[in-house]
Design a protein around this nucleic acid. Structure first.
Length: 253
DNA sequence: GCGACAG
DNA sequence: ATCTTGTCGC
């Protein structure tokens, strides 16, 4: 896990990355947002995918972060990393990274298999400042990251067809459900993500570019990673792992 | 000023 | 995110 672990450690050590004031955090986002890059992502070339997630305990005093690496072909788990920590930044919508990335970076440091791409439970460019947690993570470790969220934070969106694989673009603007975003995208509106149906007749997920990936490739990969359930397998595994860990440590040790 | 608001 | 049993649907 050479390079990535090293960059994660460096990002954690840099105090500039971890302001304790929301105002400074927003300024930090604006500064780092310029470093976000979109690059082609060929799903066929992806071998290892890492899913990331965090779960919280009671009283906002404890949390667990997990990173689980899957073989993109077989969807078999090939590596896991889990850490327990304490939140050091409050939950503020739009400022996720400052709360969740410290433990997530530590979990990433614990991996022995180097992922080709990471999947984060949140947004990338589909964010008011185009800097959701997926972009934040991507910039800190300069690695490919895809954002896959379960609900909308920002952007006009539409519901795709009921069948698996259907999708609609998300375009810049206040969070709002409209009849059809396709005409808006065709007319040149800024496309910031995709509403993707990963399972028939089930609520869609919201995919956006985090860093060093492109939207079409990201949506394609997310669909492949969700052959049966709504939530992509890497994130489901990470969710399970940190969720059960926290429960086991809520009653005793 | 008011409402919205990822996990 | 978390607190929580049964229940409707594929």
């Amino acid at each position: 896990m050479d390079d990535i672990a090293e960059r994660a450690a460096k990002a954690l050590d840099n105090a500039e990355n971890w302001p304790d004031d929301p105002k400074e955090a927003v300024a930090r986002q604006r500064l780092l947002a310029d470093r976000v890059r979109t690059e082609p992502l060929d799903p066929d070339s992806v071998r290892y995918v890492a899913g990331l997630d965090v779960s919280y305990g009671v009283g906002d005093r404890e949390l667990a972060a997990a990173a689980v690496v899957l073989d993109a072909r077989t969807l078999e788990v090939v590596d896991t990393s889990l850490i327990a920590d304490t939140p050091s930044f409050p939950y503020i919508s739009g400022l996720f990274g400052f709360r969740e990335l410290p433990p997530v970076l530590r979990a990433i440091e614990g991996l022995s298999v180097s992922p080709d791409v990471f999947v984060s439970d949140g947004f990338g460019l589909a964010h008011p400042r185009r800097f959701g947690v997926a972009s934040h993570l991507g910039v800190l470790i300069d690695a490919p990251v895809i954002g896959s969220a379960k609900s909308v934070l920002y952007g006009r969106n539409s519901m795709p067809g009921e069948e698996r694989g259907s999708w609609k673009p998300m375009v810049a603007g206040r969070s709002e459900l409209v009849e059809d975003t396709e005409p808006l995208a065709a007319q040149g509106a800024e496309v910031i993500g995709r509403v993707l149906r990963t399972r028939a007749r089930t609520r869609p997920v919201y995919v956006s570019v985090g860093h060093r990936v492109d939207l079409a490739g990201s949506a394609d990969l997310i669909l492949r990673l969700s052959p049966k359930y709504r939530i992509p397998e890497p994130i489901r595994h990470a969710d399970r792992l940190c969720g059960q860990y926290r429960k086991e440590h809520a009653a005793d040790g």
